Computed example of a mutant assay.
Amino acid sequence: MPSVTQVPQWDVHRLPRSEGRCFLVTGGNAGIGYFVAEQLAGTGAMVVLGSRDKAKAGDAIASISSRVPGARMKHLSLDLADLTSLKASVDALGLDRLDAVVHNAGVALDHPPRRETTAGHELMFATNHLGHFALTHHLAPLLTATPGSRIVTTGSFAAKTERLDLNDLQSTHGYQPKRAYARSKLAQMLFAFELDRRLRAAGSTTLSVVVHPGGALDALTPSRPPLHVRTAGERLRHLPLGLLVQGKDAAAWPAVRAVLDPGVRGGQMWSPRLFGLRGTPRSEPLWNHLTDTTTAARLWAASCNLIGDDLTFDEVR
């Protein structure tokens, strides 16, 4: 009888090697983004940390280098809230290929008042959605020229019960920080699925994938001084919560799998296995409102208008 080829089970602790590949992680200097960068660096790839703060990025690179012998890292100055700066940032990459970008950076405000960028955009919508939308626009030639490249967008469980107000995308009326944050993450997720539809229509091999990290607590996250220090007391006090949520190291697993796993497909959503809150990553059925192609297309058009340019994929290789 002919032998049956066994597809190896995904192991978050035994990642496939990626020498010669290059990955960009926005917000890779702290939190979940740091652990995405650390785990990707362990595969032998070049990892670029996109961050506004050069000093914090330097600390992150030093921390990763101390844990990953021979880690190949670099910092890219990146301010997603300043749309006019993004083309120069992408030009400064100086790369001839980009195998994946992880749209991880984000702003979450807990209290009023409503804040705006210098261009007059609501801060969370501008940073979380518009900044990544514009960054994708500038990265598109590099990504579509790299066969099989991936655009991985970090969504949020907070978006599951929220809906977009297309007449008030920037939360100018009845501003509530938590709702504005959830809507900015929903906008990211709708954009990512619309992006994959457009990539498929253009015949591109580039994939757009959505991930959400589930529940992640600092108290359950391993120490990475000076970026994050967890005491033994904190770990013990919060240990029971480990039945429901996890540390930020584990919360990075869906994004890392979305970047590396050859079995991942465009238009999928990956999340923690147990109730979407903790555990190893798995592909999750899309929430009903994430399949709303009309809203996604209208958001795309509005986003193009707000960044002052069109994101198109007419020429792909």
Rank of each mutant, 00 (worst) to 15 (best):
N128F: 11
L135V: 01
A134D: 08
S156A: 07
P213C: 01
L109A: 07
S156R: 00
F125I: 02
K178R: 13
M124F: 05
T172V: 05
H121T: 00
A158T: 14
V209D: 00
R198I: 08
M124G: 01
G106T: 03
Q176F: 11
R163Q: 15
P141R: 00
V209G: 02
N128W: 12
R163H: 15
L169H: 12
L227P: 13
V209E: 00
R224S: 14
L169A: 11
H212Y: 14
T144A: 06
H212P: 04
M189L: 10
L123E: 14
T205K: 05
R150H: 12
E162K: 05
A182E: 02
K178Q: 15
L166Q: 10
T154M: 15
V107E: 09
F193L: 15
L109K: 08
Y175E: 04
G215E: 02
P113Q: 03
T154A: 14
A158D: 13
L199T: 01
P113E: 03
V229Q: 11
L164T: 02
E194R: 10
L109Q: 14
P147E: 04
T146S: 07
V209M: 08
T144P: 11
E122T: 05
L164Y: 08
Q176L: 12
A158G: 03
K178C: 04
A180Q: 11
G131K: 01
A216R: 07
A158R: 10
H228D: 04
A134V: 13
F193M: 09
K185Q: 10
F157Y: 13
T127W: 10
T118Q: 14
S223M: 08
G155T: 07
G120R: 10
N104M: 01
A216H: 07
T127S: 11
L199D: 05
L220W: 14
A126W: 05
T127E: 05
L207N: 00
R114P: 04
L186W: 04
L139K: 07
L130D: 00
T172S: 13
L139F: 13
G203D: 08
T136Y: 07
T153W: 14
H137D: 01
V210E: 05
D168K: 10
P177V: 02
A140C: 04
F191M: 01
R150M: 06
H129D: 06
A202T: 07
P141V: 06
F191C: 03
T221R: 12
H173G: 03
N104D: 05
H138Y: 15
A134C: 14
M124P: 05
Q170Y: 15
H111M: 09
G131T: 08
F193K: 00
A202W: 01
T205Y: 12
R114C: 07
S223R: 13
S156W: 06
V107S: 09
R183W: 08
H111Y: 12
G148C: 11
L143G: 06
S208G: 13
